[in-house]
Simulated assay, not measured.
Amino acid sequence: MGDEEYAFDIGVVKEILRLTEITAVPNAPAHVRGLLTVRSVLLPILDLRTMLGLEETEAEDQRVLVVEVNGLTVGLLVDKVNEVLRVPVSVIDDTPKLAAGGQELRSVAQLDDGKRLILILNERGLIDLDEVSTIVGDNKDTKSLVEERSEGTVEEKQMVTFYLGDEEYGFEITQVQEINRLGDVTRLPKAPSFVAGVTNLRGQVVPLINLRQRFNLEDKEADDRTRIIIIELSGHRTGIIVDQVNEVLRMPAKDIETTPSIVNSSQQGESSEFMSGVCKVNNGERMILLMDTVKLLSIHETQALESMAGGTAKQPPPKPKPEKPAGEAPKVAAPSKPPEMVTTPEDDGLEMVIEE
């Protein structure tokens, strides 16, 4: 927000929504923007700028972060969402007491050798649960949603939606590892047309697929909205270049239909053969084409991509080990440090949603 970057732990963020019409709440505090209807349920919306004492402004790409605190679901209005990022715990420091000012800040992440600072917010210290309960009141729709989710009676799918031109697409959230801004790209000679090149992601060489080229769409220059969606293809991290990431959205599984055979067989563009379904939002007023990462590449293309993936920056050759004096006991080697980012529950990193 403004010139600063803030973040929440991904564990408390349930969805990221576009801002639509908000219904004002009479006599509410200044930071309470009102109520937003999400799938026929009322969601209280709090203005994060006002809560942090920042100057009010109207941003073009405002988003609503839907977070859950102690069983209560709240929408936080932010200027825009930047990334969904994994960072190693080693770069996260506790907020200095002098700088904290209150309980709103939890810690600070130092990226790019300290050149980029991200303020990690404490949702429990930021949100007044009693206030939220008062706003929601005894709303039956809200209670019904909480009860249905806790009992597991509503099957939902969560997805990351994005744009290519005017069309909206989506990946299931289980297929997405993180979302990054587009950095430096190194072109590769004789690579397929849809392979934009490779990029350095925290020391790992990651191949990039230009989805516009893959779908035979008109090329477009990258801008500040261009993003890379990191997925896994055949065991290798791969970046998918898209025009803009839109939302992290939950929707009932019943509103997702398999791709009609007539669409796959018709001339609806190259993207149809990579689809796994069609999501109908608001009774079909908004359609999202759900993509299947497995279908993005053929076996031959996947093998070609594997030759580009998984490398790391070249390291200088190790220094020769000095010979041990006779009779000296061998030293036991210390266990090697695990990689900064792994996808197991014992992960040594923190995954965050970063907003501005």
Rank of each mutant, 00 (worst) to 15 (best):
Q177V: 03
S150K: 12
P44I: 07
T293N: 08
M159V: 05
L297S: 12
A304G: 07
R181N: 10
E21T: 15
R202E: 04
G165A: 08
L117G: 01
E285R: 09
S336T: 13
T174H: 09
I179L: 11
P189I: 11
P88C: 06
Q175A: 15
E5S: 02
G2K: 10
R86Q: 04
R181P: 00
E5F: 02
I120C: 01
V353K: 00
V67M: 03
L54A: 06
G114S: 06
G284N: 05
A100F: 04
V25L: 12
E351A: 01
I230V: 12
C279Y: 07
N210Y: 05
A309T: 02
T161N: 02
E221M: 14
V66M: 07
E168R: 10
E221L: 11
V248D: 01
Q268D: 07
P207F: 05
L85V: 01
Q158P: 01
M291W: 04
A313D: 09
K324Y: 07
E104N: 04
V108I: 15
V160G: 00
R227H: 10
I120P: 00
Q213M: 10
G101A: 11
G125Y: 08
V78D: 03
G277R: 05
R214Y: 09
V81D: 05
K314V: 13
K140C: 05
E60F: 08
H300T: 10
P189T: 08
E168G: 00
E285M: 11
V242Y: 06
E151I: 03
E247S: 10
T20G: 12
G137T: 05
L305N: 00
L182V: 15
V154G: 00
V13F: 04
V342I: 10
V281H: 08
E351M: 01
S150I: 13
H300L: 08
I256T: 11
N282A: 14
K157F: 06
Q244W: 08
K331L: 13
